[in-house]
Design a protein around this nucleic acid. Structure first.
Lengths: 291, 291
DNA sequence: AATTTTTCAC
DNA sequence: GTGAAAAATT
Protein backbone atom coordinates (compact mmCIF):
# COMPACT_ATOMS: atom_id res chain seq x y z
CA UNK A 1 0.00 0.00 0.00
CA UNK A 2 1.11 3.48 -0.87
CA UNK A 3 0.04 6.67 0.82
CA UNK A 4 1.92 9.92 0.41
CA UNK A 5 0.62 13.09 1.98
CA UNK A 6 2.08 16.37 0.84
CA UNK A 7 0.94 19.50 2.63
CA UNK A 8 2.26 21.77 -0.04
CA UNK A 9 0.22 20.44 -2.90
CA UNK A 10 1.10 23.32 -5.20
CA UNK A 11 4.58 21.86 -5.35
CA UNK A 12 3.29 18.79 -7.16
CA UNK A 13 1.38 20.99 -9.58
CA UNK A 14 4.54 22.89 -10.38
CA UNK A 15 6.51 19.68 -10.83
CA UNK A 16 4.05 18.45 -13.41
CA UNK A 17 3.93 21.74 -15.26
CA UNK A 18 7.71 21.57 -15.37
CA UNK A 19 7.88 18.11 -16.91
CA UNK A 20 4.83 17.60 -19.05
CA UNK A 21 6.00 19.63 -21.99
CA UNK A 22 9.05 17.41 -22.26
CA UNK A 23 7.70 13.99 -21.36
CA UNK A 24 4.27 12.60 -22.11
CA UNK A 25 4.36 9.21 -20.36
CA UNK A 26 6.59 8.16 -17.50
CA UNK A 27 6.90 5.86 -14.52
CA UNK A 28 6.79 7.33 -11.06
CA UNK A 29 8.89 5.17 -8.77
CA UNK A 30 8.12 4.92 -5.08
CA UNK A 31 10.45 3.44 -2.57
CA UNK A 32 11.43 4.02 1.01
CA UNK A 33 13.75 6.72 -0.20
CA UNK A 34 11.13 8.78 -1.87
CA UNK A 35 9.06 9.50 -4.92
CA UNK A 36 11.06 9.75 -8.13
CA UNK A 37 10.86 9.79 -11.88
CA UNK A 38 13.34 9.42 -14.66
CA UNK A 39 12.42 9.77 -18.30
CA UNK A 40 13.70 10.72 -21.70
CA UNK A 41 11.83 13.35 -23.62
CA UNK A 42 9.78 12.14 -26.56
CA UNK A 43 12.50 12.90 -29.08
CA UNK A 44 14.99 11.04 -26.93
CA UNK A 45 17.34 13.96 -26.63
CA UNK A 46 16.84 15.24 -23.12
CA UNK A 47 16.49 13.44 -19.83
CA UNK A 48 14.50 14.47 -16.77
CA UNK A 49 15.18 13.21 -13.28
CA UNK A 50 12.92 14.08 -10.37
CA UNK A 51 13.39 13.24 -6.73
CA UNK A 52 11.06 14.01 -3.84
CA UNK A 53 12.52 12.53 -0.69
CA UNK A 54 10.23 10.78 1.74
CA UNK A 55 11.26 13.12 4.56
CA UNK A 56 9.65 15.99 2.73
CA UNK A 57 6.18 14.46 2.98
CA UNK A 58 3.95 14.97 5.97
CA UNK A 59 3.14 11.30 5.80
CA UNK A 60 4.97 8.74 3.71
CA UNK A 61 3.99 5.13 3.57
CA UNK A 62 5.36 2.85 0.87
CA UNK A 63 5.17 -0.82 1.83
CA UNK A 64 7.09 -2.02 -1.18
CA UNK A 65 8.70 -0.49 -4.22
CA UNK A 66 6.19 0.49 -6.82
CA UNK A 67 6.53 1.81 -10.35
CA UNK A 68 3.45 3.58 -11.61
CA UNK A 69 3.18 4.45 -15.27
CA UNK A 70 1.18 7.56 -15.96
CA UNK A 71 0.36 9.92 -18.75
CA UNK A 72 1.71 13.18 -17.46
CA UNK A 73 -0.84 15.27 -19.26
CA UNK A 74 -3.58 13.40 -17.48
CA UNK A 75 -1.87 13.73 -14.12
CA UNK A 76 -1.48 17.40 -14.81
CA UNK A 77 -5.16 17.71 -15.67
CA UNK A 78 -6.11 16.20 -12.34
CA UNK A 79 -3.59 18.22 -10.39
CA UNK A 80 -4.96 21.37 -11.92
CA UNK A 81 -8.15 20.56 -10.08
CA UNK A 82 -6.30 21.02 -6.81
CA UNK A 83 -6.21 24.43 -5.24
CA UNK A 84 -2.82 25.91 -4.60
CA UNK A 85 -3.33 25.60 -0.86
CA UNK A 86 -4.66 22.07 -1.00
CA UNK A 87 -3.11 19.16 0.79
CA UNK A 88 -2.50 16.42 -1.76
CA UNK A 89 -2.47 12.71 -0.98
CA UNK A 90 -1.37 10.09 -3.49
CA UNK A 91 -2.74 6.62 -2.83
CA UNK A 92 -2.36 3.27 -4.51
CA UNK A 93 -3.35 -0.17 -3.26
CA UNK A 94 -1.05 -3.12 -3.80
CA UNK A 95 -1.78 -4.83 -7.05
CA UNK A 96 -4.19 -2.15 -8.10
CA UNK A 97 -3.91 -0.68 -11.57
CA UNK A 98 -5.10 2.71 -10.47
CA UNK A 99 -3.74 5.62 -8.50
CA UNK A 100 -5.81 8.10 -6.53
CA UNK A 101 -5.08 11.76 -5.98
CA UNK A 102 -6.91 13.30 -3.05
CA UNK A 103 -7.17 17.05 -2.54
CA UNK A 104 -8.20 18.59 0.75
CA UNK A 105 -9.01 22.26 0.56
CA UNK A 106 -8.22 24.23 3.63
CA UNK A 107 -11.24 26.08 4.93
CA UNK A 108 -12.02 29.28 3.16
CA UNK A 109 -11.12 32.31 5.18
CA UNK A 110 -12.00 35.68 3.97
CA UNK A 111 -8.53 37.16 3.92
CA UNK A 112 -7.25 39.90 1.75
CA UNK A 113 -3.67 39.90 0.63
CA UNK A 114 -2.83 42.81 2.80
CA UNK A 115 -3.56 40.93 5.99
CA UNK A 116 -0.76 40.82 8.48
CA UNK A 117 1.54 37.89 8.47
CA UNK A 118 0.90 36.88 12.05
CA UNK A 119 -2.74 36.61 11.22
CA UNK A 120 -1.87 34.13 8.50
CA UNK A 121 0.06 32.08 10.98
CA UNK A 122 -2.84 32.21 13.36
CA UNK A 123 -5.19 31.06 10.66
CA UNK A 124 -2.92 28.21 9.74
CA UNK A 125 -2.82 27.17 13.35
CA UNK A 126 -6.59 27.28 13.45
CA UNK A 127 -6.83 25.07 10.41
CA UNK A 128 -4.85 22.42 12.20
CA UNK A 129 -7.43 22.48 14.96
CA UNK A 130 -10.26 21.96 12.54
CA UNK A 131 -11.21 18.37 12.10
CA UNK A 132 -12.40 18.63 8.52
CA UNK A 133 -12.15 20.61 5.33
CA UNK A 134 -14.72 22.40 3.30
CA UNK A 135 -13.95 20.38 0.23
CA UNK A 136 -12.37 17.00 -0.32
CA UNK A 137 -11.87 15.74 -3.84
CA UNK A 138 -10.47 12.50 -5.07
CA UNK A 139 -9.45 11.64 -8.59
CA UNK A 140 -8.72 8.12 -9.66
CA UNK A 141 -6.61 7.39 -12.70
CA UNK A 142 -5.74 4.20 -14.57
CA UNK A 143 -2.08 3.33 -14.60
CA UNK A 144 -0.26 2.35 -17.78
CA UNK A 145 2.56 -0.02 -18.58
CA UNK A 146 5.58 1.91 -19.73
CA UNK A 147 8.89 0.43 -20.75
CA UNK A 148 11.27 2.19 -18.50
CA UNK A 149 14.87 2.31 -19.41
CA UNK A 150 16.16 3.48 -16.08
CA UNK A 151 19.56 4.80 -16.93
CA UNK A 152 22.16 4.93 -14.27
CA UNK A 153 23.40 8.48 -14.47
CA UNK A 154 27.07 8.46 -13.62
CA UNK A 155 28.22 11.02 -11.10
CA UNK A 156 30.56 13.23 -13.03
CA UNK A 157 33.10 15.84 -12.13
CA UNK A 158 32.12 19.02 -13.87
CA UNK A 159 34.51 21.57 -15.26
CA UNK A 160 32.24 24.35 -14.25
CA UNK A 161 29.12 24.85 -12.18
CA UNK A 162 27.16 28.05 -12.47
CA UNK A 163 24.46 28.99 -10.02
CA UNK A 164 22.24 31.90 -10.89
CA UNK A 165 18.71 33.19 -10.33
CA UNK A 166 16.36 30.87 -12.17
CA UNK A 167 14.32 33.77 -13.50
CA UNK A 168 17.42 35.31 -15.02
CA UNK A 169 18.34 32.07 -16.73
CA UNK A 170 14.80 31.76 -18.07
CA UNK A 171 14.89 35.30 -19.38
CA UNK A 172 18.21 34.70 -21.13
CA UNK A 173 16.97 31.54 -22.84
CA UNK A 174 13.80 33.27 -23.95
CA UNK A 175 15.61 36.33 -25.24
CA UNK A 176 18.21 34.36 -27.13
CA UNK A 177 15.60 32.20 -28.81
CA UNK A 178 14.16 35.29 -30.45
CA UNK A 179 17.49 35.62 -32.28
CA UNK A 180 18.73 32.07 -32.83
CA UNK A 181 18.11 28.36 -32.29
CA UNK A 182 21.16 27.35 -30.32
CA UNK A 183 23.02 28.80 -27.39
CA UNK A 184 26.74 28.63 -26.85
CA UNK A 185 27.46 28.60 -23.13
CA UNK A 186 30.97 29.54 -22.29
CA UNK A 187 32.37 29.69 -18.77
CA UNK A 188 35.61 31.49 -18.08
CA UNK A 189 36.89 33.21 -15.02
CA UNK A 190 35.30 36.39 -16.34
CA UNK A 191 31.87 34.90 -15.98
CA UNK A 192 29.43 32.91 -18.02
CA UNK A 193 28.57 33.95 -21.55
CA UNK A 194 25.45 32.92 -23.46
CA UNK A 195 25.67 33.55 -27.19
CA UNK A 196 23.57 32.93 -30.24
CA UNK A 197 23.53 33.78 -33.91
CA UNK A 198 20.61 34.07 -36.26
CA UNK A 199 19.42 35.64 -39.48
CA UNK A 200 18.92 39.08 -38.02
CA UNK A 201 22.18 39.24 -36.09
CA UNK A 202 24.05 37.98 -33.09
CA UNK A 203 23.63 38.21 -29.34
CA UNK A 204 25.93 37.81 -26.37
CA UNK A 205 24.86 37.95 -22.76
CA UNK A 206 27.54 37.93 -20.11
CA UNK A 207 26.82 37.30 -16.44
CA UNK A 208 29.61 38.03 -14.06
CA UNK A 209 30.08 36.33 -10.76
CA UNK A 210 28.29 38.39 -8.17
CA UNK A 211 27.98 37.36 -4.57
CA UNK A 212 27.50 40.82 -3.15
CA UNK A 213 23.76 40.82 -3.26
CA UNK A 214 21.30 41.21 -0.45
CA UNK A 215 19.66 37.85 -0.90
CA UNK A 216 21.65 34.68 -1.58
CA UNK A 217 19.17 33.59 -4.23
CA UNK A 218 20.10 36.61 -6.32
CA UNK A 219 23.75 35.67 -6.45
CA UNK A 220 25.56 34.41 -9.51
CA UNK A 221 28.24 32.00 -8.44
CA UNK A 222 30.73 30.35 -10.75
CA UNK A 223 32.79 27.40 -9.64
CA UNK A 224 35.24 26.73 -12.41
CA UNK A 225 37.98 24.16 -12.54
CA UNK A 226 38.54 24.58 -16.24
CA UNK A 227 37.05 26.87 -18.90
CA UNK A 228 34.37 25.15 -20.93
CA UNK A 229 32.35 26.04 -24.02
CA UNK A 230 29.36 24.00 -25.17
CA UNK A 231 26.47 24.43 -27.58
CA UNK A 232 22.85 23.46 -26.89
CA UNK A 233 19.48 23.64 -28.58
CA UNK A 234 17.51 26.53 -27.10
CA UNK A 235 14.26 24.70 -27.64
CA UNK A 236 15.11 22.28 -24.86
CA UNK A 237 16.56 24.94 -22.61
CA UNK A 238 13.27 26.79 -22.83
CA UNK A 239 11.42 23.63 -21.87
CA UNK A 240 13.67 23.23 -18.85
CA UNK A 241 12.87 26.72 -17.67
CA UNK A 242 9.28 25.64 -17.14
CA UNK A 243 10.64 24.50 -13.76
CA UNK A 244 11.44 28.08 -12.77
CA UNK A 245 8.53 28.35 -10.31
CA UNK A 246 10.03 25.49 -8.30
CA UNK A 247 13.15 27.29 -7.24
CA UNK A 248 14.57 30.78 -7.19
CA UNK A 249 17.94 29.49 -8.32
CA UNK A 250 19.17 27.13 -10.98
CA UNK A 251 22.51 25.46 -11.39
CA UNK A 252 24.18 24.59 -14.66
CA UNK A 253 26.87 21.91 -14.57
CA UNK A 254 29.11 21.74 -17.60
CA UNK A 255 31.90 19.54 -18.84
CA UNK A 256 33.15 19.24 -22.37
CA UNK A 257 31.42 16.44 -24.30
CA UNK A 258 29.13 15.71 -21.34
CA UNK A 259 25.47 16.60 -21.16
CA UNK A 260 24.72 19.77 -19.28
CA UNK A 261 22.81 19.34 -16.04
CA UNK A 262 20.24 22.01 -15.36
CA UNK A 263 19.11 21.55 -11.78
CA UNK A 264 16.28 23.15 -9.83
CA UNK A 265 16.39 22.27 -6.15
CA UNK A 266 13.05 21.64 -4.51
CA UNK A 267 13.18 23.00 -0.99
CA UNK A 268 13.32 20.34 1.73
CA UNK A 269 12.52 17.60 -0.74
CA UNK A 270 14.88 17.04 -3.62
CA UNK A 271 15.31 18.30 -7.15
CA UNK A 272 14.42 18.26 -10.79
CA UNK A 273 17.41 17.75 -13.06
CA UNK A 274 17.42 18.10 -16.81
CA UNK A 275 20.21 16.58 -18.90
CA UNK A 276 20.92 17.67 -22.43
CA UNK A 277 23.72 16.54 -24.69
CA UNK A 278 25.72 19.30 -26.35
CA UNK A 279 25.55 19.79 -30.06
CA UNK A 280 28.69 18.59 -31.69
CA UNK A 281 30.51 21.55 -33.15
CA UNK A 282 30.97 20.80 -36.80
CA UNK A 283 31.51 22.60 -40.05
CA UNK A 284 27.92 21.83 -40.96
CA UNK A 285 25.37 23.92 -39.19
CA UNK A 286 22.49 21.49 -39.13
CA UNK A 287 23.96 18.63 -37.22
CA UNK A 288 21.33 16.55 -35.51
CA UNK A 289 21.78 16.60 -31.77
CA UNK A 290 23.23 13.42 -30.33
CA UNK A 291 22.35 11.99 -26.96
CA UNK B 1 32.12 56.58 -34.55
CA UNK B 2 28.75 56.58 -32.92
CA UNK B 3 28.02 55.90 -29.30
CA UNK B 4 24.74 56.84 -27.67
CA UNK B 5 24.03 55.92 -24.08
CA UNK B 6 20.49 56.13 -22.84
CA UNK B 7 19.86 55.46 -19.17
CA UNK B 8 16.16 54.98 -19.64
CA UNK B 9 16.30 52.10 -22.08
CA UNK B 10 12.61 51.37 -21.79
CA UNK B 11 12.02 54.58 -23.69
CA UNK B 12 13.65 53.14 -26.78
CA UNK B 13 11.56 50.00 -26.44
CA UNK B 14 8.41 52.09 -26.35
CA UNK B 15 9.52 54.15 -29.32
CA UNK B 16 9.92 51.04 -31.41
CA UNK B 17 6.63 49.55 -30.33
CA UNK B 18 5.05 52.87 -31.32
CA UNK B 19 6.48 52.92 -34.83
CA UNK B 20 6.87 49.38 -35.99
CA UNK B 21 3.24 48.79 -36.81
CA UNK B 22 3.33 51.69 -39.23
CA UNK B 23 6.80 51.43 -40.72
CA UNK B 24 8.76 48.28 -41.46
CA UNK B 25 12.10 49.66 -42.68
CA UNK B 26 13.54 53.07 -41.97
CA UNK B 27 16.73 55.06 -41.67
CA UNK B 28 17.79 56.30 -38.28
CA UNK B 29 19.71 59.53 -38.71
CA UNK B 30 22.35 60.58 -36.24
CA UNK B 31 23.84 64.01 -36.09
CA UNK B 32 25.13 66.38 -33.48
CA UNK B 33 21.55 67.44 -32.87
CA UNK B 34 20.26 64.04 -31.98
CA UNK B 35 18.90 60.73 -33.08
CA UNK B 36 16.02 61.01 -35.49
CA UNK B 37 13.88 59.13 -37.94
CA UNK B 38 11.46 60.15 -40.61
CA UNK B 39 9.49 57.66 -42.63
CA UNK B 40 6.30 57.14 -44.56
CA UNK B 41 4.16 54.22 -43.61
CA UNK B 42 4.14 51.30 -46.02
CA UNK B 43 0.99 52.46 -47.81
CA UNK B 44 2.50 55.94 -48.15
CA UNK B 45 -0.35 57.67 -46.40
CA UNK B 46 1.01 58.58 -43.00
CA UNK B 47 4.34 60.00 -41.94
CA UNK B 48 6.25 59.42 -38.73
CA UNK B 49 8.89 61.77 -37.38
CA UNK B 50 10.92 60.91 -34.31
CA UNK B 51 13.43 63.11 -32.56
CA UNK B 52 15.56 62.23 -29.57
CA UNK B 53 17.80 65.21 -28.83
CA UNK B 54 21.41 64.57 -27.96
CA UNK B 55 21.00 66.38 -24.62
CA UNK B 56 18.64 63.66 -23.46
CA UNK B 57 21.32 60.99 -23.65
CA UNK B 58 23.68 60.32 -20.80
CA UNK B 59 26.44 60.12 -23.34
CA UNK B 60 26.21 61.19 -26.96
CA UNK B 61 29.02 60.84 -29.41
CA UNK B 62 28.44 61.18 -33.12
CA UNK B 63 31.60 62.03 -35.01
CA UNK B 64 29.84 62.53 -38.31
CA UNK B 65 26.33 62.32 -39.61
CA UNK B 66 25.19 58.79 -40.10
CA UNK B 67 22.11 57.28 -41.63
CA UNK B 68 21.47 53.72 -40.55
CA UNK B 69 18.86 51.65 -42.34
CA UNK B 70 17.17 49.09 -40.16
CA UNK B 71 14.27 46.72 -40.22
CA UNK B 72 12.19 47.98 -37.33
CA UNK B 73 10.82 44.56 -36.50
CA UNK B 74 14.33 43.27 -36.02
CA UNK B 75 15.31 46.26 -33.92
CA UNK B 76 12.21 45.65 -31.87
CA UNK B 77 13.08 41.99 -31.39
CA UNK B 78 16.46 42.95 -30.01
CA UNK B 79 15.12 45.72 -27.84
CA UNK B 80 12.63 43.32 -26.31
CA UNK B 81 15.65 41.51 -24.92
CA UNK B 82 16.46 44.56 -22.84
CA UNK B 83 15.03 44.81 -19.39
CA UNK B 84 12.89 47.82 -18.64
CA UNK B 85 15.51 49.16 -16.26
CA UNK B 86 18.43 48.51 -18.55
CA UNK B 87 20.80 51.16 -19.77
CA UNK B 88 20.92 50.95 -23.56
CA UNK B 89 23.90 51.93 -25.67
CA UNK B 90 23.78 52.14 -29.46
CA UNK B 91 27.13 51.78 -31.16
CA UNK B 92 28.30 51.89 -34.75
CA UNK B 93 31.80 52.15 -36.10
CA UNK B 94 32.51 54.39 -39.06
CA UNK B 95 32.13 52.51 -42.29
CA UNK B 96 30.70 49.49 -40.54
CA UNK B 97 27.57 47.92 -41.92
CA UNK B 98 26.39 46.81 -38.51
CA UNK B 99 24.96 48.44 -35.44
CA UNK B 100 25.30 47.15 -31.89
CA UNK B 101 22.79 47.49 -29.11
CA UNK B 102 24.24 47.01 -25.67
CA UNK B 103 22.09 46.44 -22.60
CA UNK B 104 23.41 46.81 -19.08
CA UNK B 105 21.20 45.47 -16.35
CA UNK B 106 21.39 47.40 -13.18
CA UNK B 107 22.55 45.27 -10.28
CA UNK B 108 19.85 43.55 -8.36
CA UNK B 109 19.00 45.43 -5.22
CA UNK B 110 16.63 44.11 -2.69
CA UNK B 111 13.96 46.75 -2.95
CA UNK B 112 10.28 46.34 -2.60
CA UNK B 113 7.97 48.58 -4.54
CA UNK B 114 6.94 50.36 -1.43
CA UNK B 115 10.40 51.71 -0.79
CA UNK B 116 10.64 55.43 -0.44
CA UNK B 117 11.51 57.44 -3.45
CA UNK B 118 14.62 58.97 -2.00
CA UNK B 119 15.94 55.49 -1.43
CA UNK B 120 15.54 54.80 -5.12
CA UNK B 121 17.54 57.88 -5.91
CA UNK B 122 20.20 56.77 -3.50
CA UNK B 123 20.35 53.38 -5.12
CA UNK B 124 20.63 54.90 -8.55
CA UNK B 125 23.51 56.95 -7.32
CA UNK B 126 25.11 53.82 -5.92
CA UNK B 127 24.77 52.01 -9.21
CA UNK B 128 26.75 54.77 -10.86
CA UNK B 129 29.53 54.08 -8.42
CA UNK B 130 29.67 50.44 -9.38
CA UNK B 131 32.13 49.72 -12.10
CA UNK B 132 30.22 46.93 -13.72
CA UNK B 133 26.94 45.15 -13.99
CA UNK B 134 25.87 41.65 -13.29
CA UNK B 135 24.63 41.20 -16.81
CA UNK B 136 25.76 42.84 -20.00
CA UNK B 137 24.23 41.90 -23.30
CA UNK B 138 25.18 43.01 -26.76
CA UNK B 139 23.23 42.48 -29.93
CA UNK B 140 24.70 43.12 -33.34
CA UNK B 141 22.56 43.70 -36.40
CA UNK B 142 23.27 44.17 -40.10
CA UNK B 143 22.29 47.52 -41.53
CA UNK B 144 20.33 47.83 -44.77
CA UNK B 145 20.28 50.33 -47.60
CA UNK B 146 16.99 52.15 -47.65
CA UNK B 147 15.99 54.86 -50.09
CA UNK B 148 15.10 57.72 -47.87
CA UNK B 149 12.94 60.47 -49.16
CA UNK B 150 13.55 62.91 -46.37
CA UNK B 151 10.72 65.35 -46.71
CA UNK B 152 11.06 68.80 -45.36
CA UNK B 153 7.99 69.28 -43.26
CA UNK B 154 6.95 72.90 -43.45
CA UNK B 155 6.23 74.60 -40.18
CA UNK B 156 2.59 75.52 -40.37
CA UNK B 157 0.26 77.74 -38.44
CA UNK B 158 -2.55 75.61 -37.17
CA UNK B 159 -6.12 76.71 -36.81
CA UNK B 160 -6.50 74.67 -33.69
CA UNK B 161 -4.32 72.74 -31.28
CA UNK B 162 -5.91 70.34 -28.83
CA UNK B 163 -3.99 68.88 -25.94
CA UNK B 164 -5.57 66.03 -24.00
CA UNK B 165 -4.63 62.96 -22.00
CA UNK B 166 -3.13 60.45 -24.40
CA UNK B 167 -5.06 57.58 -22.86
CA UNK B 168 -8.30 59.42 -23.43
CA UNK B 169 -7.47 60.01 -27.07
CA UNK B 170 -6.54 56.33 -27.47
CA UNK B 171 -9.81 55.26 -25.91
CA UNK B 172 -11.81 57.53 -28.20
CA UNK B 173 -10.12 56.23 -31.34
CA UNK B 174 -10.61 52.64 -30.27
CA UNK B 175 -14.25 53.18 -29.36
CA UNK B 176 -15.08 55.01 -32.55
CA UNK B 177 -13.48 52.38 -34.73
CA UNK B 178 -15.98 49.85 -33.46
CA UNK B 179 -18.67 51.98 -35.09
CA UNK B 180 -17.06 53.43 -38.19
CA UNK B 181 -13.90 53.70 -40.27
CA UNK B 182 -13.34 57.41 -40.23
CA UNK B 183 -13.40 60.09 -37.59
CA UNK B 184 -14.52 63.63 -38.09
CA UNK B 185 -12.63 65.89 -35.74
CA UNK B 186 -14.26 69.19 -35.24
CA UNK B 187 -12.92 71.96 -33.04
CA UNK B 188 -15.14 74.83 -31.98
CA UNK B 189 -15.12 77.03 -28.97
CA UNK B 190 -17.42 74.49 -27.34
CA UNK B 191 -14.68 71.91 -27.39
CA UNK B 192 -13.43 69.15 -29.64
CA UNK B 193 -15.86 66.68 -31.15
CA UNK B 194 -14.94 63.26 -32.49
CA UNK B 195 -17.65 61.76 -34.68
CA UNK B 196 -18.12 58.69 -36.74
CA UNK B 197 -20.83 57.05 -38.71
CA UNK B 198 -21.26 53.40 -39.56
CA UNK B 199 -23.81 50.83 -40.55
CA UNK B 200 -25.06 50.38 -37.03
CA UNK B 201 -25.35 54.05 -36.24
CA UNK B 202 -23.41 57.13 -35.35
CA UNK B 203 -21.25 58.27 -32.49
CA UNK B 204 -20.17 61.65 -31.21
CA UNK B 205 -17.73 62.23 -28.40
CA UNK B 206 -17.29 65.77 -27.21
CA UNK B 207 -14.42 66.83 -24.99
CA UNK B 208 -14.75 70.25 -23.45
CA UNK B 209 -11.84 72.35 -22.45
CA UNK B 210 -11.00 71.51 -18.87
CA UNK B 211 -8.05 72.97 -17.06
CA UNK B 212 -9.40 72.62 -13.55
CA UNK B 213 -7.92 69.24 -12.86
CA UNK B 214 -5.56 68.11 -10.14
CA UNK B 215 -2.79 67.11 -12.47
CA UNK B 216 -1.81 69.12 -15.52
CA UNK B 217 -1.56 65.94 -17.61
CA UNK B 218 -5.26 65.37 -17.11
CA UNK B 219 -6.21 68.69 -18.64
CA UNK B 220 -7.88 69.16 -21.97
CA UNK B 221 -6.72 72.42 -23.51
CA UNK B 222 -7.96 73.88 -26.75
CA UNK B 223 -6.13 76.67 -28.51
CA UNK B 224 -8.34 77.77 -31.36
CA UNK B 225 -7.79 80.55 -33.84
CA UNK B 226 -10.48 79.37 -36.18
CA UNK B 227 -13.01 76.52 -36.07
CA UNK B 228 -11.89 73.54 -38.10
CA UNK B 229 -13.45 70.25 -39.15
CA UNK B 230 -11.47 67.43 -40.74
CA UNK B 231 -11.97 63.76 -41.50
CA UNK B 232 -9.38 61.02 -40.98
CA UNK B 233 -9.08 57.27 -41.35
CA UNK B 234 -9.39 55.68 -37.90
CA UNK B 235 -7.11 52.86 -38.89
CA UNK B 236 -4.12 55.19 -38.87
CA UNK B 237 -5.25 57.01 -35.76
CA UNK B 238 -5.28 53.72 -33.93
CA UNK B 239 -1.75 53.01 -35.11
CA UNK B 240 -0.64 56.37 -33.79
CA UNK B 241 -2.02 55.61 -30.35
CA UNK B 242 0.56 52.84 -30.02
CA UNK B 243 2.73 55.70 -28.81
CA UNK B 244 0.50 56.27 -25.78
CA UNK B 245 2.99 54.73 -23.31
CA UNK B 246 5.50 57.42 -24.27
CA UNK B 247 3.55 60.35 -22.93
CA UNK B 248 0.60 61.05 -20.71
CA UNK B 249 -0.61 63.74 -23.07
CA UNK B 250 -1.05 64.05 -26.79
CA UNK B 251 -1.53 67.11 -28.95
CA UNK B 252 -3.55 67.31 -32.15
CA UNK B 253 -2.76 70.16 -34.52
CA UNK B 254 -5.37 70.86 -37.16
CA UNK B 255 -5.74 73.16 -40.14
CA UNK B 256 -8.11 72.78 -43.01
CA UNK B 257 -6.58 70.88 -45.94
CA UNK B 258 -3.39 70.24 -43.97
CA UNK B 259 -2.37 66.92 -42.47
CA UNK B 260 -3.16 66.55 -38.80
CA UNK B 261 -0.16 66.33 -36.51
CA UNK B 262 -0.54 63.90 -33.63
CA UNK B 263 2.34 64.57 -31.28
CA UNK B 264 3.58 62.65 -28.26
CA UNK B 265 6.29 64.53 -26.40
CA UNK B 266 9.10 62.42 -25.05
CA UNK B 267 10.17 63.88 -21.73
CA UNK B 268 13.51 65.70 -21.82
CA UNK B 269 14.29 64.32 -25.25
CA UNK B 270 11.99 65.19 -28.08
CA UNK B 271 8.88 63.78 -29.65
CA UNK B 272 7.16 61.38 -31.96
CA UNK B 273 4.93 63.09 -34.48
CA UNK B 274 2.49 61.40 -36.78
CA UNK B 275 1.17 63.22 -39.86
CA UNK B 276 -1.98 62.14 -41.64
CA UNK B 277 -3.70 63.86 -44.54
CA UNK B 278 -7.42 64.47 -44.12
CA UNK B 279 -9.90 62.66 -46.29
CA UNK B 280 -11.37 64.95 -48.84
CA UNK B 281 -15.04 65.37 -48.07
CA UNK B 282 -16.93 64.37 -51.15
CA UNK B 283 -20.34 63.13 -52.12
CA UNK B 284 -18.78 59.74 -52.66
CA UNK B 285 -17.89 57.86 -49.49
CA UNK B 286 -14.97 55.80 -50.70
CA UNK B 287 -12.54 58.48 -51.69
CA UNK B 288 -8.96 57.28 -51.49
CA UNK B 289 -7.00 59.26 -48.94
CA UNK B 290 -4.56 61.71 -50.42
CA UNK B 291 -1.22 62.61 -48.93
C1' DA C 1 1.89 21.68 -30.26
C1' DA C 2 3.18 25.39 -33.24
C1' DT C 3 3.55 30.30 -34.77
C1' DT C 4 2.63 35.08 -34.48
C1' DT C 5 -0.37 39.12 -33.35
C1' DT C 6 -5.05 41.19 -32.58
C1' DT C 7 -9.97 41.57 -33.47
C1' DC C 8 -14.32 41.42 -36.16
C1' DA C 9 -16.67 40.66 -40.39
C1' DC C 10 -16.76 41.19 -45.44
C1' DG D 1 -6.00 45.32 -46.82
C1' DT D 2 -6.86 40.46 -46.28
C1' DG D 3 -8.48 36.90 -44.02
C1' DA D 4 -9.80 33.14 -40.46
C1' DA D 5 -10.44 32.01 -35.53
C1' DA D 6 -9.44 32.83 -30.75
C1' DA D 7 -5.69 33.87 -27.36
C1' DA D 8 -1.45 34.57 -25.41
C1' DT D 9 3.29 33.43 -25.07
C1' DT D 10 7.72 30.96 -27.30
Amino acid sequence: MLELRLVQGSLLKKVLEAIRELVTDANFDCSGTGFSLQAMDSSHVALVALLLRSEGFEHYRCDRNLSMGMNLNNVSKMLRCAGNDDIVTIKADDGSDTVTFMFESPSQWNLSHSVFFFLCLFVEWLSFLRKGQDKIADFEMKLMDIDSEHLGIPEAEYHAIVRMPSSEFARICKDLSSIGDTVVISVTKEGVKFSTKGDIGTANIVCRQNTTVDKPEEATIIEMKEPVTLTFALRYMNSFTKATPLSSTVSLSLSSELPIVVEYKIAEMGYIRFYLAPKIEDEEEDVKPQV
